[in-house]
Computed example of a mutant assay.
Amino acid sequence: MPSIPQSLRYYRITYDDSVDNYRYLLSFESRKRNNGETVVIILMNPSKAGIYNGVEKVDSTLGKVLCWCERQNYHTVHILNLFPYRDPHPSQLTTLGLATLIGNKQRCNTRIIDTCNDSNINKVIVAWGDCDGIPPNLVQQRTNWIWSILDINKVYHVGNKTEDDNPRHGRMWNGNPLLNKW
């Protein structure tokens, strides 16, 4: 019998808005506590995490992110992405256009706006990294839009920013990096 990833001992998936090869929102709730802060984490693009035939699965990035969230005592964690196109190998995204990377634009943007602006959200943690593999003009277009809808007073990043002044990607949250105001 396969072992349960440590992150799924801490959190259970409570909502998975996935359609075909796109994941627009993935929400987790603590298995250990009934209260605590609710956070949104915006990553680059989803890999394999979600619910498949009733079975919860996490990938290595979300495993690391959820373990970090557990150490911060967060109760609810909502995962969004700049680009909801699901692919575990970002280098393969170089040939895809913005329409393919986003999928249903209205659904994608509505999920981001509604989730980030929900009054129950305590923090929005940006964590998309340098978006290696995605054409820079598409990254700039998307991040400009994201910054235009965020309440900067709620925005944080984990650890140091990258050399290109981007928020560190969740897969790089090694050890116990500090949470910083943007």
Rank of each mutant, 00 (worst) to 15 (best):
R31V: 10
R31E: 12
R31I: 08
R31Y: 05
K32I: 10
K32S: 09
K32N: 11
N34T: 12
N35E: 14
N35R: 11
G36P: 09
G36L: 10
G36S: 09
G36F: 08
T38R: 05
V39E: 02
I41F: 02
I42T: 10
I42Y: 01
I42Q: 00
L43R: 00
M44N: 04
M44A: 13
N45I: 08
N45C: 11
K48W: 02
A49R: 01
I51C: 05
Y52P: 02
Y52H: 14
N53Q: 12
N53W: 04
N53R: 12
G54V: 13
G54H: 10
G54M: 11
G54L: 12
V55E: 11
V55K: 13
E56G: 03
D59R: 03
T61R: 00
T61E: 02
T61N: 03
G63T: 09
G63V: 02
G63P: 04
G63F: 00
K64E: 05
K64D: 04
C67D: 13
C67R: 13
C69F: 05
E70I: 04
E70K: 14
R71K: 14
Q72C: 08
Q72W: 05
N73G: 06
Y74A: 07
Y74R: 05
T76I: 12
T76F: 08
V77R: 00
H78Y: 12
H78K: 10
I79E: 01
L80G: 02
L80K: 05
L80M: 09
L80S: 04
N81R: 01
L82Y: 01
L82F: 03
F83A: 00
Y85S: 01
R86S: 15
D87E: 15
D87G: 04
D87T: 06
D87M: 10
P88I: 09
P90C: 08
P90I: 03
P90N: 09
S91E: 15
S91P: 04
Q92L: 14
Q92T: 14
T94Q: 13
T95K: 09
T95P: 00
G97R: 07
L98F: 11
T100C: 11
T100W: 04
L101C: 11
I102S: 03
G103T: 12
N104P: 08
N104I: 08
K105V: 14
Q106W: 06
C108G: 05
C108N: 14
C108P: 01
N109W: 10
N109A: 08
T110F: 07
T110V: 09
T110R: 14
T110I: 08
I112C: 04
D114Q: 15
T115A: 08
T115K: 01
T115P: 04
T115V: 13
C116I: 12
N117L: 15
N117R: 15
